[in-house]
Amino acid sequence: MDPATIIGIVVAFGAIIGVNVMEGGNPAALIVPPALVLIFVTTPLVAIAGGTLADAKTAGSSLARAFTGKVKPAGDLVPVMVGLAERARKEGLLALQDQVGSIDDEFLKAGITMAIDGTDPEELRDILESQVYSKQQADKQAAKFFADMGAYAPTIGIIGTVMGLVHVLENLSTPDKLGHLIAGAFIATLWGVMSANVIFLPLGNRLKRLGQLEAERMELTIEGISAIQAGSNPRAVAQKLRALLGPGEQAEAA
């Protein structure tokens, strides 16, 4: 579990509440049910309206992943694939069959299994790359859903404020109520802007980043399987895979 998103959102809200208190405000005054319903119910609904129900389901299933998901470093796969390359070079691909069960990466396991079954190298690469593309598209759509909510929320907040100001104009004959009504009217805009920039947009960016990291790991796996299938020298396999890693991961994979 990577708690970066939880830490960021919780601390950000803590800072906002702290500033509110420092300025003499009352945090309880920010809890206005109509404004909360408007932002946190209407915003997802208009995001759904801009896509399909399948998109909404994908985004919903990605929500837990956005908060707790963690991608294993791609460098972790290098020693595993180098070990597979050494055995395949000495004993042939069929010798890897008894090692498949011990591989904990499902994408690598599927690729090695297809290689053992004699799948043509080009066909195997096409199949694996298609899986990467499919996953990238799903991750992209989930990230877009939250980014769309981040774009809609401030405007929906303004709608709430306008409705609140209409209510203010209806009560001009009672000046003692105007201050409270005006303050309440702007709460919707506050929640719209705050939810967009503290919740929705960060979640979209988080999913986008997780998708990038997972795709990089899968692409590294494809290169490793291709090298193993071609019978490449294990040292050459290690050098090739490490070259695909970022500077920090290269040192860890060495």
Rank of each mutant, 00 (worst) to 15 (best):
I112H: 07
L241I: 02
A151E: 04
Q141C: 12
I7D: 11
I103R: 05
I225M: 06
V11N: 00
A35H: 09
L93N: 10
A4F: 12
G164T: 09
P202M: 07
E214G: 09
G24T: 04
P154W: 04
T119D: 12
G25L: 10
I31D: 02
A215C: 10
T113S: 12
V78F: 02
P247A: 06
L77M: 14
T68W: 14
T221S: 12
A35R: 09
A253V: 04
K208I: 12
E23T: 14
F146T: 01
S195I: 09
G25M: 03
D176F: 11
L36D: 07
A15C: 02
R242H: 09
V21N: 05
V11Y: 08
A142K: 01
V193H: 03
P234H: 06
P154I: 03
R65H: 13
I9F: 01
V41K: 03
L203D: 03
V82G: 10
E86T: 14
D2W: 02
L124W: 03
P121Y: 06
A115E: 08
M218Y: 08
A95K: 01
E219M: 13
H180S: 15
M218T: 04
I158Y: 07
L108I: 09
K57E: 11
G246C: 06
I112A: 06
L77T: 12
Q141A: 12
E252F: 12
L201F: 12
V78I: 03
P121D: 03
A254H: 13
G150P: 03
A74T: 08
D104A: 05
V198D: 00
V193C: 00
T189C: 02
A183P: 00
V82F: 04
I39E: 06
A147L: 15
D105Y: 04
T42Q: 02
I39K: 11
P175I: 07
S61E: 15
L201D: 05
A29F: 04
F200P: 06
K177S: 14
T113Y: 08
G75K: 09
G92V: 00
N197E: 03
P79I: 03
A15M: 10
